[in-house]
Design a protein around this nucleic acid. Sequence first.
DNA 1: ATTATTAAATGGTTCACCCATTCAATGGAA
DNA 2: TTCCATTGAATGGGTGAACCATTTAATAAT
Lengths: 288, 288
Amino acid sequence: MSTKSSPHPSTRARPLAAARRERASDSRTAGAPAAVTFRPIHTRRAFEEICARIREQLALGVLKPGDKLPAERDLAQQLGVSRNVLREALRSLEMAGVLRLQKGVKGGAFVQAGDTSRMNVVMRDMLSLGTISVRELSEARVHVLELGVRLACANARQSDLEALEANVERTDLATREGRLLDRVECAREFYKLLAEASGNKVIAMIMDSVTEIHMRFVYAKVASSGVAMAGLVERRRKFLAALRERDVSSATRLMRSHLGAVQRMLEQDPGAMSLQVALAEMQPGMRP
Amino acid sequence: MSTKSSPHPSTRARPLAAARRERASDSRTAGAPAAVTFRPIHTRRAFEEICARIREQLALGVLKPGDKLPAERDLAQQLGVSRNVLREALRSLEMAGVLRLQKGVKGGAFVQAGDTSRMNVVMRDMLSLGTISVRELSEARVHVLELGVRLACANARQSDLEALEANVERTDLATREGRLLDRVECAREFYKLLAEASGNKVIAMIMDSVTEIHMRFVYAKVASSGVAMAGLVERRRKFLAALRERDVSSATRLMRSHLGAVQRMLEQDPGAMSLQVALAEMQPGMRP
DNA sequence: ATTATTAAATGGTTCACCCATTCAATGGAA
DNA sequence: TTCCATTGAATGGGTGAACCATTTAATAAT
């Protein structure tokens, strides 16, 4: 929908053929062949060029969230490429959270307001590929959350605190009614709200990305063992009290000890949760 | 060329047609039509299913870095989709840093060891889209680097310290020879090395992602103004001395004051650098 | 006025084909 | 034999035309 979608914010036309053939045909045939250095010259593929151009328009502000790109058939012609190649580029940008593709009349490729969850995907891929380890992620999480708590102490607004308190009430209710998995869902939400309370979207994004996978483990653990953290709500209340009083040292201390307790819960009865399975099940929409 | 590429790690076959049509044809025609709830049911597109399946194999460890996927034509047939659609999926995974596509005989789609720079791309897109602001990024950078310094004080190995010291020597040389842009390059490298010294790849990735764009600004500023930070090398040496002595409070204090100085340099002679231009120029390989 | 039908635009997908690159196998020349 | 040029097959890169499925606005029927 957005702003009645201005026809096309003109993603420039110049055919790609020329731009792509920047080959090393640097035919300065004559001169000294001695100490010439060669750039790595990786022939840019069409879809790369297209992604680059669209990203350029985004960076320059020519394309903004809500804008609609020309229809695939038109844009392909403007760029001088086939529709298939254009679609590869659009797909990549869609996966990057930059575009949203929508079918039907009035459909098209729309520029998205940033999807802050893309970083989570990066983190998950890094884990799957073994580039980072669960240990590193857990450790990073402790540090990042401690930073987040410090910022939240400094920056949390009244509305943030109220949202957190409402969350703790929901947690309390879920606990008393024995809805353990709902309680895990509340925990996920708690960290999300805490991230927002930091007052910095970059930090919040980072907090989310190191928390996402962790919560999946917690979920699996709780689902399989039926065990729930004892005294969670009380600790949350104490933490929120510290946060409300802007008491950094108490808040960080409480958070640290809570994270330690959770970690111990996850590690007891070892092997209960397989990294592989947890990651594999974590495909698209997360929710059970 | 990796492990002589085992034929195919078998990216399962079951045709996608069925899996994709998980439509709401939940034809329990008889029963009560009253309080039925409907799942959001967003018809999964073929390429999404393919990405999901490949990522699943990665998560399960069936596919590992270095492995080769079947050739496009084969895999497309196995999955029961057209080659074009398969390519959209492969492209997306390539852009996500999960695969590398290579031409020629013995070419193919190879699983990559994680590309830790993907997070930088996310950060850049978020900036381009206005989801995060330069202010937030700068602020986050200060906090993240402080955390990094603390970890580096605790974890830096001898080799890390030596690499950092060698970097400072290069910086010194570049400074004395007036190669200002090389000096900026050294600075970029310095933060990279510091990130590694943290001893945690997750933290390192985060440090890199918040530093990358910042360095682009510094580069542009230095290139346009010809101004260089005074006393940089001396400060670096003092910082490294503190790091070597594991003196957290000195190291963080020195880093914080340095970041402040850089920030002031960037902000003087205002308007010298446009966010838009800096981002737009930052497309693929960064280097000038 | 309301509701059903239709038609157009759009993304989703397929098919068949060709090009450019890579590299092992081949074979001729030294 | 050894070396180097040629060749050919396999692979990703790219094209164009066609068709399907969904969405929406305009239109027609009630």
